[in-house]
């Protein structure tokens, strides 16, 4: 007869072996474990949503009532900024109109605008090794894997898992995330990869390009996920080594990932939905 202790040891050994196999498959991203992931997200999601609302409520009380003294000062500053912004907007409108006229002359094909869906951030990744968030919109709202997630400031990330009413978004600062980008001034291509909490690394930018600190980085649209022209970040550090084809560049994303509360999910285009159905 097998003793209880031996059975326990064998059982744990088997569990570890099965788990190791599952881990090696999922680590290579060859297979996607949608089922169990979605069940747990759906179960935890409502509680996370309640917790997120409670935190936001408490934070709102703090900021709206206790900080009211500074509101008048902020109001003055914002009014001054608004005047400047209105003037700038007029200039931009003029430029947009002239751009449109020139595009019409050249018969440029206009990109189809994608509809945006607002979602609230209800949770973050439990591990400091990975950078992802959970949002309160999912499959039933039309969100699916691969949907780009943005904010007014810039690119946030991409949906990697979607349950019925919740979805998981991999942030661009995650080390496993990559966005095909362009340096707006130089038009040099590169790939932005997550480096740390508030930084991305810009790889594969050739040495011949003269990149300066502060240059804006935008999505190139060539990765098939993010549309062209979305703001990603600004160049923070440039290092040109004596040897090597590429230069080493770090960028600071425009989005403050520590204070992320709401995001916008870009819904798939109708033609993409038709392809999914095939």
């Amino acid at each position: 007869m097998v003793s209880k202790k031996t059975a326990t040891v064998v059982g744990i050994g088997l569990l570890i072996a099965v788990n190791l196999m599952a881990l090696s498959v999922s680590a290579s991203r060859r297979y996607y474990f949608a089922g169990p992931a979605n069940v747990a997200i759906s179960f935890t999601g409502p509680f996370q949503e309640i917790a997120a609302h409670a935190i936001r409520f408490a934070s709102d009380i703090w900021h709206h009532y206790f900080y009211i003294v500074s509101v008048a000062r902020t109001n003055d500053r914002l009014e001054a900024a608004l005047k400047g912004a209105t003037q700038y907007q007029n200039q931009c409108m003029e430029l947009a109109l002239s751009n449109q006229r020139l595009r019409d002359l050249l018969n440029f094909k206009e990109g189809t605008p994608r509809s945006l869906l607002a979602a609230e951030v209800i949770g973050r990744d439990p591990s400091p090794w990975f950078k992802s968030i959970t949002i309160n919109k999912g499959l039933s709202e039309g969100i699916d894997r691969g949907a780009p997630v943005v904010m007014a400031g810039g690119v946030v990330g991409m949906v990697t898992d979607a349950a019925n009413h919740y979805a998981k978004v991999l942030l661009i600062i995650d080390q496993n995330s990559a966005v095909d980008v362009l340096l707006q001034e130089e038009r040099a291509r590169g790939v932005s990869k997550g480096a740390s909490v508030d930084r991305c690394r810009l790889d594969y930018v050739l040495r011949k390009y003269d990149v300066s600190v502060g240059d804006t980085v935008v999505s190139s649209g060539l990765d098939g996920v993010f549309p062209k022209g979305l703001r990603v970040g600004a160049v923070e550090k440039v290092m040109k080594r004596n040897a090597g084809v590429f230069q080493s560049i770090y960028i600071k994303p425009f989005v403050d990932f520590e204070k992320l509360e709401e995001v916008m999910v870009m819904l798939p285009l109708p033609e993409d939905l038709r392809n999914v159905g095939r």
Binding site: N19, S26, P126, S132
Partner: peptide, 20 residues
């Protein structure tokens, strides 16, 4: 399994951790 599904890491990493 629940923590694995909340994380963007490879599936099974937390189950493995807890067993070890």
């Amino acid at each position: 399994a629940a923590t694995d599904s909340m994380s963007s890491g490879p599936y099974g990493i937390y189950s493995m951790t807890y067993l070890l």
